[in-house]
């Protein structure tokens, strides 16, 4: 077991290292941030001093090593644009993204689970087929176009909801949230819906598949034969059967949405982390991009690591030396 944990730990660290190299090189490749930061009329001496201060005169491998050295000490660098620690910038955007994703996943679950049950219980009925066809639509609509059409319909034509941006926030225990004001919720509605639609489709498919599988199982058939009411069967047996995969997938989706809900945040000008990432790429704010991707990867790697260890500890069938794919 210890050997296995050690092996997974080394693998995780290698992944983190690989990601840091790739991201560092990729952002390096886009362009020279000095040309964006420093106005052209600045004297050569001033410009050179700035380049040296940011360490941009060093060869790229040396820049990378000094980044790595600082990262090991917990310092992911200062934003080129704002001059403050990159991590602070990212964390300041976290609440906005978090509340958006929370509402989106809530919507997806509240609408997706009942529809999925409906479709799964009678897979061949007309409404079920319509629901399943709808999920294909949900997957098919490109996120940015869907967002634009939501704006067109609800903001431009109907005038019900604001077009973009974050609404009024209130501070709860020092964390600003717009979930508690009417204005805030109005601003949240469209981006959350936009983010929710593909997840709703995913939810419906998962639940439908799980339901179909559950009702064909012997114990459910037995319960039905015994005359247990349908409601009870669904509530006790079917739901329980599908809950684990749904929660697992929802959790994974939640993580990736918090880290990368970039497109929706761009369309709706939502001041979240995904918007920060895109803006930072376009401003060549290398420390922010690298810190962002590193934090996201660290989170994913850590979660995967824990899950694998737990699986291995709980399930003796998992081969401890084999691969987990």
């Amino acid at each position: 077991m210890t050997a296995y944990i050690l092996q997974r730990l080394i693998q995780s660290i290698l992944v983190l290292l690989a990601v840091s190299v790739v991201v560092f090189l990729a952002v390096y490749g886009i362009g020279d941030p000095i040309e964006l930061l420093v106005p052209p009329q600045v004297s050569a001496a001033e410009r050179t001093a700035m380049i040296q201060r940011l360490g941009l005169d060093l060869p790229v491998w040396q820049q990378y090593l000094s980044f790595l050295g600082n990262a090991l000490k917990g310092d992911l660098g200062h934003s080129f644009v704002h001059g403050v620690p990159a991590v602070d910038l990212i964390l300041a955007r976290l609440p906005a993204t978090f509340e958006l994703v929370l509402l989106a996943m809530g919507l997806a679950a509240v609408i997706g689970i009942p529809l999925g049950l409906l479709a799964g219980l009678n897979p061949e009925s007309r409404p079920s087929r319509a629901i399943m066809a709808g999920t294909i639509l949900g997957f098919s609509l490109p996120s940015f176009w869907k967002g634009m059409m939501l704006i067109l319909l609800f903001s431009v034509f109907l005038g019900w909801l604001p077009t973009a941006g974050r609404g009024e926030t209130v501070s709860v225990f020092g964390i600003p949230t717009s979930l508690l004001t009417l204005d805030g919720l109005k601003h949240l509605a469209l981006p959350a819906l936009n983010l929710a639609i593909p997840n709703m489709a995913l939810m419906i498919r998962l639940v439908a598949a799980g339901t179909t599988e559950a009702i064909s199982q012997d114990y459910v058939k037995y319960a039905r034969a015994k005359g247990v009411r349908r409601k009870r069967i669904v509530g006790r047996h079917v739901l329980r059967n599908i809950l684990i995969p749904v929660v697992t997938v929802a959790g994974m989706e939640f993580g990736s949405l918090v880290a990368f809900s970039t497109i929706t945040e761009t369309v709706f000008a939502w001041p979240g982390m995904g918007k920060l990432l895109i803006d930072s790429v376009y401003q060549l704010d290398r420390p922010v991009v690298v810190a962002y991707v590193m934090l996201a990867t660290l989170l994913f790697v850590a979660v995967n690591f824990l899950v694998d260890i737990l699986y291995a500890a709980l399930d003796p069938r998992v081969k401890l030396t084999g691969e987990m794919a």
Partner: peptide, 14 residues
């Protein structure tokens, strides 16, 4: 000004 972006006034006072 250690944190300034070059061209932010040091060319004037320089």
């Amino acid at each position: 000004n250690e944190t300034a972006i070059a061209g932010s006034f040091a060319d004037i006072t320089g």
